[in-house]
């Protein structure tokens, strides 16, 4: 049963050392209010962040000293005044402050699929000659069916996924106007925390059913300054300030 909880209680579901992943894509529907509260925690969390690519939660947690490592495919967004790379994340990588792994986003999605399905690996053809194959020590296996060699990636199994959605209903089902990675993240993660704009009596066609979710927090405006389709647009000036401060 999905629980409706306070923000404070939801925060206790994050454990030190967790691998954490956030819903939304680029500048949309990042669970910013939740992340800001998490960043204020005094306990050192040493989180491993998976970014799909979704730079704001990562930037906020890193600024609070809560990120030990990062795995992503991309760290940048296009804002009104051009392409922006989060300055501190770039510096942290350039100066070796955080452990960091980069991959092709397709390889990461295949990893999540393996994680969601409980499989030991998933083929991700096409990366054999990019720098990622060697750097990430991706292995190839011989296909038992056609004998060809195929690169495989290990499963990604986040401890916790945090999503911000438009609606939740009393049964704990959620509706997302613009689902991007959210369903796969909810399937692959061990625990799923949701913040939502509004709670309604009943959603007739949920995007993600309650069975996938652990707890829901009612947090209107919870994605500001990223956008939440149907509710508010992104705030480029604030995004730029947060990403480059």
């Amino acid at each position: 049963m999905t629980e409706f909880v306070s923000l404070k209680k939801a925060l206790t579901r994050i454990q030190p050392g967790d691998t954490i992943v956030f819903g939304g894509f680029q500048t949309n529907r990042a669970p910013v209010a939740f992340v800001q509260a998490l960043a204020r925690k005094r306990t050192p969390l040493r989180l491993s962040v998976l970014s799909f690519p979704n730079p704001l939660p990562l930037t906020l947690l890193h600024a609070a000293g809560q990120v030990a490592s990062l795995q992503s495919s991309f760290n940048g967004v296009v804002l009104e005044n051009g392409f922006t790379v989060p300055r501190r994340i770039r510096q942290a990588i350039e100066t070796g402050q955080i452990a960091w792994q980069e991959s092709d986003v397709y390889a990461m999605i295949q990893g999540l699929r393996a994680g969601a399905q409980g499989l030991p690996f998933m083929p991700a053809p096409g990366l054999a000659e990019s720098a990622y194959a060697e750097k990430n020590r991706y292995q190839s296996v011989k296909s038992p069916y056609d004998g060809g060699s195929i690169l495989v990636v290990p499963p990604l199994r986040p401890d916790v996924a945090v999503l911000h959605v438009q609606q939740a209903d009393r049964q704990g089902n959620v509706w997302i106007a613009d689902p991007l990675n959210d369903q796969l993240l909810a399937q692959a993660a061990r625990r799923v925390i949701v913040s939502c704009e509004e709670i309604v009596e009943r959603i007739s066609q949920p995007t993600i059913a309650a069975v996938y979710l652990d707890c829901i927090v009612h947090l209107p405006q919870g994605a500001v300054p990223t956008s939440c389709a149907g509710h508010y647009a992104q705030d480029d000036a604030r995004l730029h300030a947060l990403l480059t401060s």
């Binding site: 495919s73 991309f74 940048g76 990019s130």
Partner: peptide
Amino acid sequence: VRGPGSVGTPS
């Protein structure tokens, strides 16, 4: 210089 990352360009 650390780049932005390759997104899905290799695949």
